[in-house]
Design a protein around this nucleic acid. Structure first.
Lengths: 202, 202
DNA sequence: CGATTTAATTAACTTATGTCAAGTGTCGGT
DNA sequence: ACCGACACTTGACATAAGTTAATTAAATCG
């Protein structure tokens, strides 16, 4: 059963690199599973993030509390994505971010020490990690561009097209936070969009 | 003379990794210099970005033109920073971005093929590149958080503190674009800040 | 199944930011 | 010294987005 789930990760790596059978075995033996209930915290601010996580099933939000004391979602992790509190994981220092499950979730995790071992030992795994990091980087680059160049409505339409699997699954208030607007304003945007559906042609 | 300038890059790498003398020599022999005049384009949209560049002296902006046809600055490169049009450089495909010199600039560049050779051959250099990429990533992560959680005035104050060397050096309109606001509104922010200097305590 | 919390909507009003247009100042080139 | 770009500012007005608070709908838990 668990071995079946681990397959998702092996598949993930296989897509990004030619993984030697030894590397595959070594990787698999270092994966561990973790189940989160809804509202469980995977990480709290100030804690050191010990794991890089692969989401098998479920959804987790990563957020930070600003000076004014409000939560701001910076990203969501859903099926088949790697996620971690990057700076804390890399430098093993206290995280600025919280990570909280929005649904019951099944994660497959690698400890920092195993991660370091694997990337030091297997160039293919190291390369796959660089690919993941490149993807994360390009994702944030796009987010920055969207934030400085688009209205809230345009960013919402972009979100719908980028993350169709999250819409209707997580509370709108979390999407609003991710977009940098209030839930009330998102509600108005949605209301106008349903009134003039043609406006959806982005 | 040029050898002197190359020293800046060697220094940069030395700070981030233990560089073997052979790697150092190999790296140095693959660096080339490039001078840009003000308003020169280092890269235009649609072109493939052939280089990773290190800014020795000067300033370059990277921008993209949105659907509405307006330019939006996504980043600035000034002294002692690496910059490139990342996606285009990595995948050698047409860039979505333009890069334009805001001042006469001196760059030290590495071709993609040399970059690949160096990172494949010298683990230290590969590691240094990962450090650069991590830095870029964390920079954008912070930008996203700032964009979704701060007002324009707060983002401007943050910019002043993050990039004091750019203030008064490049036109305010470019800073406004980077912050995602209009030049007129930035002017009003500046005006209020000089009226109530204590408001600068961020 | 009912009781209670959480989510989403709506409206009135406020604040943040954009648009347009005019005006001033500055700087390099002639 | 003059001229024309460009940079910056300012004010009146318009639009985007936030705030507060009330209301309804829907999910959760006992």
């Amino acid at each position: 059963m668990e071995t079946n789930q681990k397959q998702a990760i092996i598949n993930f790596f296989s897509k990004h690199t030619r993984l030697s059978s030894q590397g595959m075995q070594d990787l698999e033996s270092r994966l561990s599973f973790s189940v989160l209930k809804r509202k469980d915290h995977l990480l709290k601010m100030g804690e050191v993030c010990r794991f890089n996580s692969f989401m098998v099933k479920g959804c987790v939000r990563t957020f930070k509390i600003c000076r004014a004391g409000k939560e701001h979602n910076i990203s969501f992790a859903s099926e088949n994505t790697w996620f971690t509190s990057f700076k804390s994981f890399i430098f093993q220092n206290p995280s600025e971010y919280y990570m909280e499950a929005l649904e019951q979730s099944l994660l497959c995790q690698i400890k920092k020490s195993d991660w370091d071992y694997l990337t030091d030992t297997y160039p293919e795994i190291s390369q796959a990690f660089r690919r993941i990091l490149e993807k994360w980087y390009l994702n944030y680059e796009n987010r920055v561009f969207q934030n400085i160049s688009m209205t809230a409505r345009e960013r919402y339409l972009q979100f719908l097209s980028d993350y169709p699997n999250l819409v209707g699954r997580i509370p709108d208030a979390h999407i609003a936070s991710y977009l940098g607007i209030t839930p009330e304003f998102l509600s108005k945007i949605r209301s106008k969009l349903s009134q003039y559906p043609s406006a959806r042609i982005a």
